[in-house]
Structures are given as C-alpha cells and as structure tokens.
Design a binder for these strands. Structure first.
Length: 273
DNA sequence: TTGTCGATATTCT
DNA sequence: GAATATCGACAAA
C-alpha cells in the first residue's frame, strides 16, 4: 500500500475520533494561556467567565473581551458562540479558529496606519464590539474588537453543536448557483463567511456588543484542564503585507476537522515532537 | 486532491 | 480603475 494512501486513512481515523469526542484527545494546556484557567481559580465573587448581564448563566461579559488581540484570539478557542434567531431557534458552535489583527502597526489590518473609516469604525470601539463587513462584494466576515486601538479578532471557523439543520438551510439559501447538493456538517462553518451564513450574521450586526446583545452571545466552552494543542500559523488571504504576511497570528485547535485551513509546516514548528 | 477562475460591492488610489 | 481578512464550481491529474 502506498505511504500516502495509508497516511490518508490514518488522518481520517484521527479526525473521526476527534469528531466523536473532541476533548478526549486533548493535550495539556500551554502555560502561555493564563486566560484559560478554570473559573474556579479566579476567585468566587467576580469571574470573568460568568458575569451575566442578561440572564444567560454562562455568558461571557465585557471583562473577557478586554484583553489584547493575541491573547483574546487564543481565549476565544473553545468558547461557544450562540445565535438566537427571531423565531427563538438557538444555533450553537464552538470556536476552533481565529485570527488576531493588531491595529495601526499591522499592515494586514483594515486599521493599518490608523485608518478610521465608516466601514471599520467598530474596530475602534470598546472591546466586545462586533465588526462585521462585506468582503468581495458578496460575503460577510465577523470580528470582535479587542483591547488596543483598532485591534480585533476574526472568527474563522466553528464546530457546529446545535441547530445544524437550520444552519444547512441558511447556507443553502444564501449560496448562489446550484442549490441542490446537501452540505456536509464540516462544510457548514469552516470559513469566516461560511459561519456568517450559517448563523445568519449580516451587516446589521456591525457595532453591536457581544457582551450585551440579545440575538448573539458567547458562552464558556467549559473545556477544563485538558485542551487540544493550539497551532499558531500565518493568516489567510491577506495578500502581501510585508513582514506581517508571515506572522503567526492565526490560531486553531490542532487536529480539529472543523478548521478552514490546515498549516502542516506551522504544526511541525509549534509542537516540536 | 490541487489549481484556476468568476461573482460582486465597497474602499481606497 | 484596482484591490479585497472568500467561496464554490469545474477541470486536470
């Protein structure tokens, strides 16, 4: 049997395992991730994970978003994004891939050079503010403002957890062309614009507050002490932004089948087996 | 499995 | 007029 074929089978098996039990294959947490400690270690009266302004018990509050873009991008991994539709349907997905955009000095950011326009105004608003914009004339991307002027985090992929059939419908309706083929689960949210379609997120969400909004919020993913390893890789689709093109500002759960783009070279560098 | 290409609107030059 | 933080169809291998 050719080696490539065998590797392919092994890879598929590993993915299947992850799909069935995403947390069992987890490795020990990185010491670089202080924001991911269990809530119990943060003291009883004021946990950043359970501040709950509007009655959602596990809702993450403003304190969670008030950290610099890189730690926030890492802290997003494993948390659960919840979208409540007008009819009450709740769509849920665990965040598995993000990108950090650092602000004026970041040549790949919309806020590079301190540019502030009508489009990117929400990048400069308080941490937790959504920055939703139209890309390539037909798709949306969803970002969350972080600490730091003009800094934010792009959400790139989710592991769908609930409301999958509604997501499939939304994706099919919004997709152009042949609307026949049934989308696989992994095709629902494995990309920044795909997750916006699946969760019915459009421009009307721009400038809303993820810590306060009624139609969408973030919940603690309760991943516990065992978490998947996090890969730091170059960002996707930013063209040539000089030295900023290669910087490892994209973060994803290693081995997750829900990630949009896998970077094998970065994984070698990161894990040092 | 990989590469190429068109769609399409807003922003910036 | 060019570029763009994308996606999906299709062809080739």
């Amino acid at each position: 049997l050719p080696l490539s074929r065998r590797m392919g089978q092994k890879k598929r098996m590993a993915e299947k395992e992850l799909q069935q039990s995403p947390l069992d294959t987890a490795q020990s947490p990185s010491p670089k991730e202080p924001h991911l400690r269990p809530a119990s270690s943060l003291g009883p009266q004021r946990s950043i994970y359970f501040s709950s302004p509007k009655g959602h018990p596990a809702r993450l509050g403003t304190e969670f978003f008030d950290q610099p873009a890189i730690p926030l991008a890492r802290a997003f991994l494993g948390q659960v994004l919840v979208r409540r539709l007008a009819d009450g349907t709740e769509l849920r997905g665990r965040i598995v891939e993000t990108e950090a955009y650092l602000g004026p000095e970041d040549e790949a950011a919309h806020s590079r050079g301190g540019r502030q326009t009508t489009r990117n105004r929400s990048m400069f608003m308080k941490p937790g503010t959504l920055y939703v914009y139209i890309i390539y004339g037909m798709y949306f991307c969803m970002n969350v403002s972080s600490q730091g002027d003009g800094a934010c985090v792009l959400l790139r992929a989710l592991e769908p957890l609930g409301g999958l059939e509604t997501m499939r419908q939304l994706r099919n309706n919004l997709r152009k062309g042949t609307l026949s083929r049934t989308l696989k689960d992994r095709e629902l949210c494995n990309g920044p614009s795909k997750l916006c379609q699946a969760l019915a997120i459009d421009k009307s969400f721009d400038q809303r507050d993820l810590a306060q909004d009624e139609a969408m919020w973030l919940e603690n993913g309760l991943l516990g002490p065992r978490r998947p390893a996090v890969v730091a890789a170059a960002r996707v689709g930013i063209g040539n932004a000089g030295e900023w093109t290669q910087k490892p500002l994209r973060f994803y759960f290693q081995g997750s089948p829900w990630v949009s783009v896998v970077d094998k070279a970065a994984e070698q560098k990161n894990t040092q087996t």
